[in-house]
Amino acid sequence: MQDYFNFLWVMTSKEIKARYKNAFLGFLWIFLNPLFQMLVIGFIFQKIIKTPIRHYFSFLFAGLLAWNFFAYSFTKATPAFVWERTLIKKARFPREAIPLSIVFANFFHFLASFLLFFIFLLAWPGGHISWLGTATIIMAILWIVLFTIGATLLSSALNVKYRDVNFFIQALLILWFYATPVIYSLNILPPVYLPLFQFNPLAYPFALLHHSLVATPLPPASILWTNLGLSFLIIVLGILVFRRESKFFADWL
């Protein structure tokens, strides 16, 4: 068991190290990337479109960090087995280490920049986040991480057999970004559209994250339960499909 976690750790640190080894500014990129995104999107919505959301830059930054974690993990892990085919055909090892190490490496990046952001929020004049708020943030992040793990297990396993899954995921992610409350909050939408968000398992955790950071109102509980159910379904499906398919990955690569 300890060997298993050591192995996962070595795979994860490989991901982390390899990503910034040759990059100019190195580690700083994990923070700079969402910062530039925030400045551009924030400028558009704050100055041009005049969003009614208060503390919009903070609102945006938190959402972008979480979204980037999900999107980077999903994009990179889905085709991972095809890239690592020589590894799969070389030895027997727990196959899930490949997508999990990608998710964990991205989570590490997310956590580093989120902590910086959190400290910045607290240091800001009038900045205050209660213990309950902090606990809610942790819950929201945990939800997003578990969902990401389930989704990447599912997509990476399916992509071994069906190579168009990767193209489908790349197209889906672009639409998914706009279907998730990252740059907007659900309370500014006309209420007729709210039921649609029951089908996006990321809607509630993002709203929860925003709520505990910048006090945007929470969406109705119906979205909570359907999102929670759908997330659970995808996580279970991901684990089951992965367990069934991973035995035969070598046959398809």
Binding site: D3, N6, F7, V10, L87, K90, A91, R92, F93
Partner: peptide, 12 residues
């Protein structure tokens, strides 16, 4: 060496 060795089932 660590990466490859662990893939082959060796402990750290």
């Amino acid at each position: 060496i660590y990466l490859n060795g662990m893939l082959l089932g060796m402990s750290r």
